[in-house]
Structures are given as structure tokens and as C-alpha cells.
Amino acid sequence: MNSDTDLAALTCEIDRLHRECLSLIMATTNASHRPTASYAPFAHMDGKFYILVSGLAIHGENLKAQQELDILLIEDESKTRNIYARLRLNYRGTATAVQKDSAEHGRAIALLTERAGKTVSLLDTLDDFTMYRLTPTRGTLVQGFGKAFVFDPADLAGGVVQLNEKNIGDYR
């Protein structure tokens, strides 16, 4: 990263995607490592994502079997100038169930309700729905051609690396 200004601009883009995207796309796998792509509305709180999903859904089953997942936030197609260069933010992360009667659960439900509406309160009363905390462990922001950056979501100021032909293998 070249300067504090560059870091501020990246942070601004990351924050914007966290605000503007109401749902995230997730890639999960089952116990046999069979992949599934899905989505869920989310709340972003304390650097983590919170989703409320049914255990009857494939992604709900997968999150119980395998904690590792990939998260994607992506700019709306109608806002992009070039469909190949959409602004996007990927996170590798882990999923952990949040205890229903905890303060963390209450805060996450309140934020999710604010973002996704009153359906959240209804779903939270159903026995098959579980709140998951998705903790990002590595982030990649792609701003367009030749503009991809890898970072530690827990310590953005600790270093952002711009990907190029020489270092991309180190981050796969």
C-alpha cells in the first residue's frame, strides 16, 4: 500500500459494500466437501457478519457440518461500468452458531431487523433457524482490472497487499 490516502480509499470502499449490500453470497460445503452457493441477508457488527438461516436449507446443513466458508459482497450490476470489473469483496471465514439467549444474539437480531425488516423477528422464533456469526479471516477487494488487494480484516492498517503476477500465488 502506498499511502494512508490509499488505505483510507480502500476502507471507504469496503465500508460502502458493507452498508449497501443487504445480502451476502456464500459458498459452503457439506461433510463430503460438495459445494453449494447461496445467499442470506446479513448484519455487520464488530467486524463480523451475522446471518439467520434455516437448518432445513442446504447452506444451514452445511454450516453445521463445515465451519469454513467464502463470503462475497458484490456491486449491483446496474451500477457497474464494465460487467467484468464489478467492485467485489471476498472474505474467507468461519461460521459459529450464536446462542439464542445471548446479548450478542439480541444485538445481531436488532441490527438484522433494521436492515432486512420485521420478517427477521418471525424467523427468529422458529426452531429450525439459527443465527451464525461469520468471522472473516482474510479479505480480497477487487476494484477492477489490476486493482485487487488482499488484507487481514481484523487488522486492515497492518497491511494491504496489491496482487500482481509475482505475488498472486502466495495468496491463493
Rank of each mutant, 00 (worst) to 15 (best):
Q99L: 10
D155K: 10
G93A: 10
E20T: 11
E77A: 14
T5M: 07
L141N: 09
A97S: 03
T28Q: 12
E114C: 06
D128S: 04
M26I: 12
F149Q: 00
R19I: 01
L56Y: 13
L163P: 00
L134K: 06
A148Q: 12
L17R: 02
E13A: 15
K166N: 03
T130N: 07
G55P: 09
H44V: 04
A110L: 11
T96F: 15
S121T: 01
R16M: 10
N62L: 08
P153W: 07
L24H: 05
Y84N: 13
N164E: 01
Q66N: 15
M45C: 08
M45K: 08
D101C: 09
T137S: 12
T135I: 01
V98M: 04
S38Y: 03
K118I: 05
L73I: 08
L123D: 07
L156D: 11
L126P: 06
K100F: 05
A154G: 13
R133H: 02
Y39A: 01
L22T: 05
L163E: 05
K118Y: 02
Q66E: 14
A154N: 11
A27R: 03
Y39S: 09
L17G: 01
L89S: 13
K79H: 11
T94L: 04
A154I: 00
R138C: 08
D124F: 12
H33L: 13
T11Q: 14
G106Y: 04
R19N: 10
P153F: 01
A85R: 11
T137F: 02
G144R: 09
H59Q: 13
A157L: 01
V150K: 08
D15R: 15
L141K: 06
D124G: 07
L126G: 08
A37W: 09
H44C: 05
I83F: 11
G139L: 09
E68A: 12
T29E: 08
A40Y: 08
R34C: 08
A154T: 11
R107V: 10
A157K: 14
Y171Q: 03
A65Q: 15
R107M: 08
I168E: 09
L72M: 12
K100W: 08
T5R: 11
L52D: 06
H59L: 07
P153C: 03
T11G: 11
A157N: 13
T135H: 01
I58Y: 04
V98Q: 08
T94I: 14
T125C: 05
L122W: 12
E20H: 10
I14W: 06
D76S: 01
A108E: 07
N30H: 07
L63E: 04
R107Y: 00
T125I: 00
R138A: 11
G169W: 02
E75N: 05
H59D: 00
G169N: 09
I168A: 14
L87Y: 03
Y39C: 01
S38D: 12
S38C: 06
T119S: 15
D6V: 06
A9N: 10
H33G: 07
A8T: 12
A9V: 05
E13S: 14
P136T: 02
D15I: 08
S102N: 05
G55H: 00
A85T: 02
L69C: 13
N82H: 14
G60N: 09
E114W: 02
T94R: 03
N90Y: 09
Y84C: 07
A148H: 13
V142C: 13
F129P: 01
K64Q: 14
T119L: 15
D76W: 09
L52N: 04
N90T: 15
L87F: 04
T29P: 04
R19E: 11
